[in-house]
Design a binder for these strands. Structure first.
Lengths: 197, 197
DNA sequence: CATTTTAGTGAACACCCGTCCACCGAGAAC
DNA sequence: GTTCTCGGTGGACGGGTGTTCACTAAAATG
C-alpha cells in the first residue's frame, strides 16, 4: 500500500494526495485505509520514518573512510543512492514544504539532527579541532544545505540522463571541496579579515 | 485580490489553495475570479512575477558597494528585507515545491537566472579572474543555495523573535565568509590538493 | 446622451473529497 | 469446533471543488 502511494508520489505533492487515489492505486476500497492508519498525517509520518531510515543507512555507510574520500568519492555515491531510492527522497523533498505542520516540523528536525551529527563528526578532523560548537554547526549546515540542493537537482533530472547527473555530481563535489578549502583559513574570532576577498 | 490571497498564503501551500477560499477572502463570488485570471496556474504565475520583482529589487540594491560590505552588511539587509516582504518570499518558497509543473519550472528558472547573474558579477572580483564559467556558476550556486536556506529559516521563524533572527543572520554571514575564504585557495584544474583537508 | 465594456451576481452542473456504518469471509486462538 | 480478531466491502452522508451560464449595475467611451 505504501508502495502504491510512493508510485503516485513520483510527481505529486503530499498535500495533493487524496486518500481515495491512494486506496485506488492499492486496489482497495477507501474505507480499508483506516484499518492501517488513523489519518493521512499518520501515513505521512510512517513514510517519513521509512524514508529517513534509508537516508540514515546511506549516511552511516558514507561515514566510513577518511574525509578525503568522503568528499571525492561519496558525492558520486550520493547520486547513485538517491537514484536507487528516488521515491523515498522525493517524498522527503516534498514533505519539506508540506502544509501539515507535524510533517514539516518532523522533516526539519531530522535534517537538523543530521547536520548536528555531521558537526560532531567534523569536530574530529585536524583543521576543525578547537572550533566552537556554533561554528561547527555553521559549516555542517552549509554542507547539508548544499547536499539537499544537490538531491533536489537530482530528483528534478531524469535518472537516465547520465550527462546531466554527472554534471550535478561534479558541481556538488567542487562545492564541497571549496568549503573544505576555506576551513583552514578560518579565524573564528575575527570580524574582519575578509575585506579583500 | 492578490493581497487577499497572500494573506491566506501566510501558512498554506499554493496547491492547497482553493479558488473558492481566495474569492471568499476577497469578498467576491467564485465566478468573478475568471474576470481576472484564466486559471489558478495563471494566478500563480502572476504572483511569481510580482514576487520576483521585489526579489530582484533587493538584489539590485545590494549589488552596489564593494564585495566586503556585500557580505558583512547585506546579510543583515537580507533578513530585514525578507521580513518586510514575508508574503512574497513565502509564496516563492512554497511555489518551489508546487505540484504545478509550470510554476515549479518557472521559479527554478528564475533562481537559476539569479545564480548566473551572480556568477557574472563575481567574475569581476580579483580572486575570481580567470575562473571558468562552470566554476563561477558552481560557487554562485553554492552561495544562492545557502541564501535560499537562510530565507527559509527566516520564514520558519516568527518575525518578532529577534534573537533567533540574529542567530540566523550571523550563521549566514559566517557561511558566506567561509566560502569566500576558500576561493583564493582554489585551483580549478587539480583533482587532488584536498586530501588532507 | 447613447453605447459598449467591465466587474460582479447567483444559481446550477457534475465530480471528488474524508468519514462512517453494518456486514462478511478467512484465518488464528483457544 | 467454536469463537474472535483482522482486513476488506459497498454504500451512503454532507460538504467542498472548478466551471458555466444568463443577467445586471456601473463605469468608461464615443
Amino acid at each position: 500500500m505504501e508502495a502504491a502511494l510512493l508510485r503516485i508520489q513520483a510527481g505529486e505533492t503530499f498535500d495533493a494526495l487524496s486518500l481515495r487515489s491512494i486506496t485506488k492505486a492499492a486496489g482497495v476500497v477507501p474505507a480499508a485505509f483506516y484499518r492501517h492508519f488513523e489519518s493521512l498525517d499518520d501515513l505521512g509520518l510512517a513514510l517519513m520514518d521509512e524514508s529517513f531510515r534509508t537516508l540514515r543507512a546511506m549516511l552511516r555507510a558514507q561515514r566510513t573512510g577518511d574525509p578525503g574520500a568522503a568528499i571525492a568519492g561519496s558525492v558520486h555515491g550520493l547520486v547513485a543512492y538517491v537514484n536507487e531510492h528516488r521515491d523515498h527522497f522525493a517524498f522527503i523533498a516534498r514533505a519539506r514544504g508540506s502544509a501539515s505542520d507535524r510533517l514539516r516540523r518532523a522533516v526539519l528536525g531530522e535534517i537538523r539532527l543530521i547536520a548536528s551529527e555531521l558537526a560532531t563528526d567534523l569536530a574530529r578532523y585536524p583543521h576543525l579541532r578547537g572550533w566552537s560548537i556554533e561554528d561547527l554547526n555553521m559549516v555542517a549546515t552549509l554542507i547539508v544545505n548544499a547536499m539537499i540542493s544537490t538531491v533536489e537537482a537530482i530528483l528534478e533530472t531524469p535518472a537516465e540522463d547520465a550527462r546531466a547527473q554527472a554534471l550535478i555530481a561534479a558541481t556538488a563535489e567542487k562545492q564541497l571541496r571549496l568549503v573544505m578549502l576555506g576551513i583552514p583559513q578560518w579565524r573564528s574570532g575575527g570580524s574582519d579579515g575578509v575585506a579583500d576577498a
